[in-house]
Simulated scan of single mutants.
Amino acid sequence: MTSSIPTWYVDPDAEAAMAEGHAPIWRHLIGLMPEHDLSTKTVLDFGCNQGGFLRHLHALRPFRKALGVDIAEQSVARANDLKGMLPVQYQTDVQLVGWDDQFDIAISHEVIYLIEDLAGHAQDILRVLKPGGVYYAVTGCHSDNPLWPRWRDLVAERTNTVVQDRSITDYAEIFKAAGFLVTARKLDFDGFLPYMPSGWLPDFRDTLDYYTQTKIVFRLIKRNDTEC
């Protein structure tokens, strides 16, 4: 996941629809984070797309500054158009050169399943986090998801990306090997979900099960230098 692409989706109009669908999930995720006061914190959104998550985060828990990175050039351009006066910078350089030990919190939402060199990504995030910093990596795209065989085909058909096959334990092992303290929970969304047929979740029951039982939130902690 190093070279840039024009858009994530083959149909560029799908980008805005994706952000609209993710909005209630982002708000729920923010509510799960124990870091309530972000007024002195620096935040990284890895795979920021059009910047929607950072706009939601700042509205609910204002941060000092943030960086959003994404390989989709048109998405980054749109994020810049929409950011207004927010203290946010966007870029397509996902290698995070020059950002060592800069972030208190890093977040990715439905990104890690697309990263071929996930071990390298884990090392990059560990490098740019401050000691004690936390990485929230959120995904329902894993081989333990009963819809995964169907989704693999849809990702290939609808997006400009290449999907990777990993289980929940595979993710945990890779981040542990990088040096993170690995914890996780189910997203366990507790709000009302709209009925919005899209092909990804073929039955409304699948929608309810996915957002309560299948989608995982990893909370990955960079140990302080004094911790063994």
Rank of each mutant, 00 (worst) to 15 (best):
V128W: 04
V111H: 02
I105H: 02
V111G: 11
G140E: 03
A122T: 04
L114M: 13
F103L: 10
T139Q: 06
E116I: 05
Q102G: 10
H142T: 07
G132K: 15
I125S: 00
G140I: 00
Q95L: 15
E110C: 10
G140Q: 06
A106V: 03
I112P: 01
K130N: 11
V134M: 03
G140V: 01
D144I: 01
L114S: 12
H109P: 01
E110W: 11
A122D: 09
G140S: 05
D104G: 11
Q95I: 02
L114C: 00
H121C: 11
S143Y: 00
I105T: 11
Y136K: 09
E110S: 15
E116Q: 14
V128A: 10
D117F: 05
L147Q: 12
A122S: 08
K130M: 10
P131G: 13
A106I: 06
H142N: 04
A137Q: 12
D117S: 05
G140A: 00
R127M: 12
D144M: 05
V94I: 11
W99E: 06
G133L: 13
T139N: 14
N145V: 01
G133I: 11
V94C: 05
G140M: 06
Y135K: 08
V128F: 08
K130L: 09
E116Y: 13
A119Q: 10
E110F: 05
G120N: 06
V97N: 11
Y135S: 01
G98S: 14
L118K: 06
A119F: 14
F103Y: 03
L96W: 03
A122F: 09
T139H: 12
H121E: 15
